[in-house]
Design a protein around this nucleic acid. Sequence first.
DNA 1: CCTACAATCCCTATTAATAGTGAAAATGTT
DNA 2: AACATTTTCACTATTAATAGGGATTGTAGG
Lengths: 194, 194
Amino acid sequence: MKYNILIAEPSALVANGITSMLTRINEHIFISHADSLSAISTLLNKGSYSLVIVNPMLIQNKLDIFKSLKKNFEGIVWISLVYSWYDANLLSLFDNAIHINDSGEQIKSILEKAFSSLNNPHSTAQQSLTEREIEVLKLLVEGNSNKEIAEKLSLSAHTVITHRKNITVKSGIKSVSGLTIYAVVKNIISLPQD
Amino acid sequence: MKYNILIAEPSALVANGITSMLTRINEHIFISHADSLSAISTLLNKGSYSLVIVNPMLIQNKLDIFKSLKKNFEGIVWISLVYSWYDANLLSLFDNAIHINDSGEQIKSILEKAFSSLNNPHSTAQQSLTEREIEVLKLLVEGNSNKEIAEKLSLSAHTVITHRKNITVKSGIKSVSGLTIYAVVKNIISLPQD
DNA sequence: CCTACAATCCCTATTAATAGTGAAAATGTT
DNA sequence: AACATTTTCACTATTAATAGGGATTGTAGG
């Protein structure tokens, strides 16, 4: 199967790097480049793309346009390509994220996952958390261990682990710090203010 | 040694609870109550207090007054008593925090720590993180494991563990989620915005 | 020179978390 | 009633993190 891939990355160097990694992983691909959100839109309307890798810089302050693009081109896997501390709010719109400091192995696994999800759709669809999962998440980001969460919700630790597994799968976020940001961004907890 | 303790907690029920826990831990104490920041100020000027337990509600929007109080009465251990998701910015002004959902054991240990620091000062003094510790903290709250941090900083995992121990001791925060909030509040990382 | 501090590395033992599965109740929906 | 989803609990094996020690090197200040 042949894929069209769109890379929207202002830095030529970075764009080059990701292009070369992609061709090493899968030779049956055709890669285009864009350097703005409108260029992305134009290209998506012209050809049939499977995978779009975007520097979120390009969509900042243009969230509405980006969201409608996503809606109009369902089935596309969107991957962000970020340099600095990532914008979790933006990133949540993507199916996955490549960080510039990721190791070659990590990037390879992200791209391979993307390719496999192209053959096996719905795996990247974002799902919302259930009430119970939100309760667990709240206690988690308040610094509780699985055991403490179990005690506070009168559950067995097993159940908490299961909920956490589901949260991880649904949110696509593994780390506690990432989940904390996620919870802040999703208004599950509120940030301190003075 | 006899200690004067001031409890500033609007809820009579909560104030009662903490009072009873205190008397169970240490019988050589004298407890006063206050229900506003000005009442705290008045009482501190009258007597010589060692420990003040405050609901941060009372100092919200009155940070300046609170800070000058802290400066004027050096040596006092300040403990916050919080109900909801804590305000890390406020809490950083305190030497420790009691959360209303903490177990009896946890509260006991916080109070015991406070008593021991009264005899052994400087232990609660807040210290700032070194450059290296901040680097480690950054990578930590970006979701990296100790091993990943070690790789990215070209350190051994041992060193990372040592830095994390120091961060934990200095910040008084054990959980990754708490450290994430800490890092946000201290502008070590920036929060996503759209 | 001596001291304090930062940064580095090492060890053991214990606890916590994760990955990968499985499955039984309870609830909700058509 | 049948089906989907949620919530609950379980097991195994592996990896990660923590607690609590100790130790060396280099550097800046008194």
